[in-house]
């Protein structure tokens, strides 16, 4: 059981890392992205109009690293416990 949870923790850590990579590797979590629209102003000039659009992208420092660290550590602890438990069972069987 512990072993299964350990692998699930590792999978979650890898999953969060993959999402961060796929979202363009932002350093901090972004909740909006800049949108540039070309419009002609009252002086006849083509200008870039900037606005912000909701867009959630997880950041390395505030989400990805803490999540990877926590799930990675949890997976390691669970894996060690699972191995220890299986060794104890094997020892009991030998005895």
């Amino acid at each position: 059981m512990s072993k299964a949870f350990a692998w699930l923790s590792f999978a979650l850590a890898v999953g969060v890392l993959a999402v961060w990579l796929a979202q363009g590797r932002p350093l901090v979590t972004m909740t909006e992205r800049p949108v540039t629209q070309k419009v002609v102003d009252e002086f006849g000039d083509t200008m870039e109009k900037h606005s912000w659009e909701p867009d959630l992208r997880i950041g390395l420092l505030d989400v990805t690293l803490p999540v990877v660290a926590v799930f990675g550590a949890l997976g390691t602890v669970l894996l060690v416990r699972a191995r220890r438990a299986s060794r104890e069972v094997a020892a009991k069987e030998r005895a």
Binding site: P26, V28, T29, M30, T31, E32, R33, P34, W52, D55, G59, D62
Partner: peptide
């Protein structure tokens, strides 16, 4: 001032 990240 806005950069798209509330924390920043």
């Amino acid at each position: 001032l806005k950069t798209g990240s509330p924390i920043r």
